[in-house]
Design a protein around this nucleic acid. Structure first.
Lengths: 191, 191
DNA sequence: AATTTAAATGAATTATTATTCATTTATACA
DNA sequence: TGTATAAATGAATAATAATTCATTTAAATT
């Protein structure tokens, strides 16, 4: 009976938030600018979300989910441990290289003071399989006997920082660079 | 002839910015709140700095400088390479553990959109000795043949993420944990 | 084609927050 | 002790940005 929401508009809004964030930082993500750049009226944003905070929180959850899906897509627990580890590492690294704006947004929003505690919890659950995977590695003596959370933090942190650096310097990583980085990481955490 | 500025006020202001940032994110750092929490009038902030942007930029430069000083304090180029590396790694790690709010501020402000290009350049110079040190390590075959900037990003990133994680979980790291982490890092990047 | 419903609009409003400035206060120096 | 000077104050103002809402538009159903 009624006019349907235009899904393409919603995607445009999401795209633009990330674009503005990368272009000039969190402080420049304004509702009016999002609307203008996405080609919609500012009031339209409030049809999809009840507030700026709501919009950003939803985008955060969505993006985290996408990242997790991407990372675990080809994960096969029957596969060799190193191969699995490698696959996930490259999947995550490649995702960050392909979509630095998503990685940046997720990383920054986490400390913005706008994220809800509920969404922090909710999105951590997406990565539960990774914790399990790392714990298994520890138990089976593939990995150093260090808390999975620490291993995860160490890996994610260095990937993030690397990608931010490459992004800021407009450096396109080649395969051999990525291989070197992976080797460096694996060498560090494996027994 | 005139009333002097109260240096203690200035320190209080700096302290409070970092405190507010950690307490509830960048979006909650308001001039009025800074003033109230620091026990000064909001107008006073504008005696020390011409704008919020100016205040934050100054604090950023100051903090970066302090970090660099701290890190290079005991650096002696005549010392054994691994020892020097170790000293600097621990100095930085310890600094981040002791002052997570400073590390968080510096990291977040870099992508806030409020930092000036000039200050980015200026503060990068503080860390020039580190680049030199890493280049030397590469040339002398102590380290993997990877761009110094990448090594630096990889190390800093994992330290930051680890400290953020420990801070958020209120975990106090013990010496053996830090030793493990250092070993992990060194193992990763050394030849 | 007419009708219904909700999407979409964007100017106006409200809310928030940075900044100013007339006034007061504290210090250094004569 | 008095005076000059700049620090400090905080209510008032300006600037910025989020949100609302009366109106228009487009799709779906009859």
């Amino acid at each position: 009976m009624s006019r349907p929401k235009n899904e393409e508009k919603l995607h445009a809004i999401h795209r633009v938030v990330l674009k503005l964030l990368v272009r000039s930082g969190f402080s420049s993500v304004k509702m009016a600018d999002i609307a203008k750049e996405a080609g919609v009226a500012s009031g339209t944003l409030y049809i999809y979300y009840s507030s700026k905070e709501g919009l950003l929180n939803a985008l955060f959850v969505l993006t985290k989910q996408e990242i997790a899906q991407h990372m675990f897509r080809m994960f096969d627990p029957k596969e060799d441990y190193l191969i699995s580890f490698r696959n996930m590492w490259f999947a995550y690294m490649q995702y960050c290289i392909d979509f630095p704006e998503k990685m940046l947004f997720v990383e920054q929003f986490l400390y913005s003071g706008l994220i809800t505690a509920e969404n922090i919890e909710r999105t951590e659950l997406f990565f539960e399989p990774l914790n399990t995977f790392l714990d298994t590695g520890r138990k089976k003596k593939y990995l150093l006997n260090i808390d999975a959370a620490l291993l995860k933090a160490s890996m994610a942190g260095s990937i993030h920082e690397l990608v931010k650096w490459m992004h800021s310097q407009q450096i396109k990583p080649n395969n051999s660079l990525l291989e070197n980085l992976f080797r460096l990481q694996w060498k560090g955490i494996s027994l």
